[in-house]
Design a protein around this nucleic acid. Structure first.
Lengths: 266, 266
DNA sequence: TCGAGCTGTGAAAATCCTGTGAAAGCAGGC
DNA sequence: GCCTGCTTTCACAGGATTTTCACAGCTCGA
């Protein structure tokens, strides 16, 4: 029905085994995860635009309560799950009252931790339907999820829903190559049938609309046999057409793309 | 800091001892609690306007999973806590995935149960009680929540309750695209059934009434495949039909909408 | 250099979505 | 009970969007 939105998670724990296993699973689910073995300053957490935080209070030391209170107070939209080795009812109640969303015991099955993280970010997301996150800016592009639309300056790209979701997904992981199957899975919400060309077709539509409103920039790059990569970069100055040996060629860009970009920008 | 608004809780459990202790505590906290030793039909739950539900799946028997799925699907805003005597990781994960917010083990300290129920119903982070604020003005429109009515000048739009609530919801987030599901969820109070057209129908009624009293303004814009956006804007001067290149065309308006608006404003 | 396998492209076909008018269902008042 | 106004449901038409296809151009390894 609806594809689970990508979750941005931070894990603060020094149990490397647990953290590693967790990372593997979350990655498979398409989450973006960052791990730290020490407390992350609340200000930094804000900047990370997280959906969920999994934290073992033992790494916080004395400051644990103060830290949790600070974090929960500062980030009411963040789903916070505490995972501690030992805890008393009183401690758990105190934590939950402070704003912690869930408190589980270690050892804990990774699958359950993930399910609980999912549950808390589900609830948090519902509580604030209007993600007032500012527009994501890339090159000349501004992607505004509150309008389901991308803009160049004040002009709308006039994207359809699928186009927008595809662009958003790509722009969410700039510089990263995403495979077709993964893209399809996350935009369409189910597995891609063998031989399906939908992704390619929508990439083309995106490129067309991007090119129309923001010529001089290349946004979507093809990786032959793999998939696509979003990476805004100004095109080479087309004012030097003569035998452009392309010395500044971005190493991530295939020659195919370089040529495509040239041909498009004319 | 935290407004402990009264929570409406239903407890479905046949462990009278636990239930009684819980009731004592919740009552002391000012919650409204109803207890049942058998499953409550989902429709009834809707009518009860609950904030939280504490449930022991053993009283549900065979239908437990189906029931939980149904309830969580129908009432995404309801905080659901399962409290079971025995459970496996797989069961807990399944429940959480279904939409359950928390799953705890029995025996369970009442204080912790309450803290967790509080945690799952903690969401109404609504901004200031804006009711007292003067009428919300948008375009030629004045929305007075104290009268459950909208006016153009001194003339009432004569909105019904649903119409008013829909308009108010939209006008509460001007410029933002709201999805149908979200609109339904917040105006009707429960999840929209697949294929339900109520939102569209009420949007039409609103548009009709708005158009009658405030022609020359476009208030509600359609975003194809997504939902609607409230954004009061004067219609293009229809007095200049000849080749209006429309240089000032609002960039937020999709071409679809431009066309719709034109057809409407004629 | 050649060929199998990929990707870009344009357009047709299929599907989905929204606006709309009207009927059917409901609840409350008289 | 009967009436009235409100809400929900239905069916259809006109578009917009998405999917599918066939083919052309490219890439890469043999």
């Amino acid at each position: 029905m609806n594809q689970q939105q990508t979750i941005r998670l931070a894990v603060v724990d020094d149990d490397s085994g647990f953290v590693t296993v967790l990372a593997k699973r979350t990655e498979a689910a398409g989450w973006q995860q960052r791990t730290s073995s020490g407390a992350i300053p609340p200000e930094e957490l804000v900047a990370m635009k997280l959906n969920a935080l999994l934290i073992d209070p033992t790494v916080l030391g004395e400051e644990a309560w103060a830290y949790l209170e600070r974090v929960c107070g500062m980030l009411p939209d963040l789903g916070v799950v505490v995972c501690s080795e030992r805890s008393t009812v009183a401690q758990r109640v105190r934590g939950l009252r402070l704003g912690v969303d869930d408190w589980i015991a270690k050892p804990c099955h990774p699958e359950e931790a993930i399910a609980r993280l999912e549950a808390v970010s589900r609830r948090r997301r519902r509580s604030r339907p209007q993600a007032e996150a500012g527009p994501v800016v890339a090159g000349e592009l501004a992607i505004r999820s509150d309008r389901f639309q991308a803009f160049v300056g004040e002009v709308s790209l006039d994207l359809t829903r699928r186009e927008f979701e595809l662009l958003q997904l790509l722009a969410d992981s700039p510089g990263q190559v995403l495979e077709r199957e993964a893209i399809y899975q996350r935009v369409w919400g189910y597995a891609m049938a063998h031989g399906d060309r939908s992704v390619d077709v929508f990439i083309r539509k995106l490129r067309q609309k991007l090119e129309k409103l923001s010529p001089g920039w290349g946004y979507i790059h093809t990786h032959f046999g793999v998939g696509y990569r979003f990476d805004p970069e100004p095109s080479e100055p087309t004012t030097a057409p003569a035998g452009s040996s392309d010395p500044l060629h971005n190493s991530f860009t295939t020659s195919t793309q370089a040529r495509n970009k040239l041909s498009l920008s004319r």
